[in-house]
């Protein structure tokens, strides 16, 4: 009980620290929006074939950039935050206090999830206001569940990746190299209709395409059912479990000497 109260308190302090660096906060939020605008400028006038009909490319990019936003807030942000705290001695220092280690990490993860929620709201609002995109109605529960699962999974993977990052200087390179290529080959930045089959098969090994698949289905206006992509969600969840297990096993509280 006390542990949980302490963990929630960590979220509050993480959040306070985040907003104290206004320029960083601004661009963290503006970054996915910039991508939304750019991709719409480049490809917004075209149309896409989806299951059941044809959609505007804008309808593709709202869930796509939502994937990017959630991954940025959860995976990238958690991994970099942990690496910087680790290099700065914050993790080690807290480790010497009665605060349970998991509560400290919960603070970072909890803050990341709140940030992801804020980003999703902003991206959806922009989609509705500027690009005439419809929010899912029948598939709204599927959208919310997929988002929540995706956020949790990418937080776990963000924690796991820190085990192979030696220090904070290496963190941006490792984190970006591990995620940016996947965003290009997983139906996030570019619709994959014309991609070679082996490439989509390769992308399907990783969690990003399944997260994107779940959100695209929920956003498909021709979806008549509940829109749950059970297989995508199962693979996504498996990645989350693996990430969590690796994080628990290999997490380091100090930078590699």
């Amino acid at each position: 009980m006390r542990g949980l109260a302490l963990a929630l308190r960590q979220v509050r302090y993480e959040n306070a620290g985040f907003w104290r660096n206004p320029l960083a906060a601004f661009f963290t939020i503006a970054f996915p929006l910039m991508f939304l605008v750019i991709f719409n400028l480049l490809f917004g006038s075209t149309e896409l074939d989806v299951e059941g009909g044809v959609i505007s490319t804008s309808t593709f990019y709202v869930p796509g950039i939502t994937v990017m936003g959630v991954i940025g807030a959860c995976y990238t942000n958690v991994a970099l935050g942990v690496c910087f705290s680790r290099d700065g001695g914050l993790l080690k220092r807290v480790r010497g206090t009665p605060l349970p280690g998991w509560a400290l990490l919960f603070g970072k993860v909890g803050h990341a999830v709140l940030l992801a929620m804020l980003l999703v709201v902003i991206i959806l609002a922009a989609g509705v206001l500027f690009y005439g995109v419809d929010i899912p109605s029948n598939a709204l529960p599927a959208f919310v569940v997929s988002l929540a699962l995706g956020a949790a999974v990418f937080c776990a993977l963000g924690l796991a990746i820190t085990a192979v990052i030696p220090n904070a200087d290496a963190a941006p390179a490792v984190v970006n190299a591990s995620i940016l290529p996947l965003l290009f080959i997983s139906d996030v930045f570019i619709p994959l209709h014309d991609a070679p089959a082996w490439l989509t098969t390769f992308a399907d090994v990783f969690p990003v395409s399944h997260f994107a698949g779940a959100l695209h289905t929920a956003f498909n206006p021709f979806e008549t059912g509940l829109g749950f992509e059970v297989l995508d969600l199962a693979i996504l969840a498996a990645w989350g479990v693996a990430g969590l297990a690796l994080a628990v096993r290999f997490f380091r509280w100090e930078p590699r000497a």
Binding site: A16, G88, G89, L90, K92, R93, T97
Partner: peptide, 16 residues
């Protein structure tokens, strides 16, 4: 709970 540790590196959030 009974010890205090001051390490060589700071380990506090610079924005608080």
């Amino acid at each position: 709970e009974r010890v205090g540790i001051v390490l060589q590196s700071a380990g506090v959030d610079p924005f608080l």
